[in-house]
Design a binder for these strands. Structure first.
Ligand code: MN
Ligand code: MN
Ligand code: ZN
Ligand code: ZN
Lengths: 129, 129
DNA sequence: TATTATTTTAGACTTAGTCTAAATATAGGT
DNA sequence: ACCTATATTTAGACTAAGTCTAAAATAATA
C-alpha cells in the first residue's frame, strides 16, 4: 500500500483553504486566501501541492475553459454550472443518464473513462438585475 | 443587418485550414499548416481571425482543458471525446437528453444557456496496443 | 550522528495568447 | 481619380498561468 498521504503543513493549509471556500477557488485565489491567513508559500509549492492533493484524490481540478484551473474539495461525483455574468460556479448533482454513456461507447468505439459536463447560464442573483 | 461577414484573404485561408483538417486543430497547428501552404501571417492576425470567425459563427472554439484551444469547422450541434493516450479528438453526435437540462434548471435556479460535454477515453487505435 | 530521501524555496523560464502603434488595405463621397 | 474614414494586418512588446531547476531546509532511516 502506498496510499499513505503525506500532509505537510503547506499541503494541509492549502487543502483547508479549498475545503473552507465554497467557491471553487483558483490558484491565485488560494494564494490570496493563504496570505490573509498569514501563510506565504512559494508559488511553486502551491502548484506542487495542488497536484499532489489532486493526485492523492483529496481534491479535484476543474478546467472550465477559463484561463486558470479551479479546485474543488467536494470529491463526490457531481458536475458544475457557471454564471456567464458573475462567473460563480455552482454544483449540479443531477447525474447524466448512464445509458447515454453506453451509447457513446457504441457510437465512437472509444472506451469511455470519464465525462465532464460544463453548463453555462445565468445564476439566480444575476437574473434579478 | 450587420450579418455581413468580411472574409479577408487571411481569414479565408485560416477558415479553409480548419475546415480541411479533420483534427480540431490548435492555433499552433493552424499556423504550421498555413506555413506549409505558403502563408505566413502575423501571430496576432491568426488569433484575431480565429476570434472573428468564432464570433461570426463560422467555426467553434473548443476548450477541452488542455493548454490551448482547438477549432472546429463543423458547427452542427455535437460533442467531443478525446483519447487520453494519443490526444486525438473525435465527434460525438448522440445528443444529451433534453429532460436532463430542464432538471438542472430546476435544481440550480440557473437559466441554462449552453452545455458542453467533454468525454475522455481510449480510442480504437490505442486500444490495440 | 551520518546518510538518504522528501519537500520547500526563489527565481528563471515557457507557453499561449493579448495588446499596441504603425503600416496597409478597403470603402464611400466628391 | 482623389481625399477621407474605417477596417485589417503586421511586428514585436507584453501578460497570465504555470513549469522547471538547483540549492536550502525538513524529515526519515541506519
Ligand atoms: Mn464542485
Ligand atoms: Mn467537432
Ligand atoms: Zn451570476
Ligand atoms: Zn488514441
Amino acid at each position: 500500500m502506498d496510499s499513505k498521504v503525506n500532509l505537510t503543513p503547506q499541503r494541509k493549509a492549502i487543502y483547508d483553504v479549498i475545503c473552507e471556500s465554497n467557491n471553487h477557488p483558483t490558484a491565485a485565489e488560494i494564494i490570496e486566501n493563504l496570505k490573509e491567513n498569514g501563510f506565504r508559500f512559494a508559488y511553486g509549492t502551491v502548484y506542487n501541492s495542488l497536484h499532489y492533493l489532486t493526485e492523492a484524490g483529496l481534491i479535484h481540478e476543474l478546467k472550465l475553459g477559463e484561463g486558470s484551473s479551479r479546485y474543488d474539495g467536494n470529491i463526490d461525483e457531481h458536475q458544475h454550472i457557471q454564471c456567464e455574468i458573475c462567473g460563480r460556479v455552482d454544483e449540479v448533482f443531477t447525474e447524466i443518464n448512464g445509458e447515454w454513456l453506453e451509447e457513446i461507447d457504441k457510437e465512437t468505439g472509444y472506451t469511455v473513462k470519464s465525462h465532464q459536463v460544463i453548463l453555462k447560464g445565468v445564476c439566480p442573483t444575476c437574473q434579478n438585475q
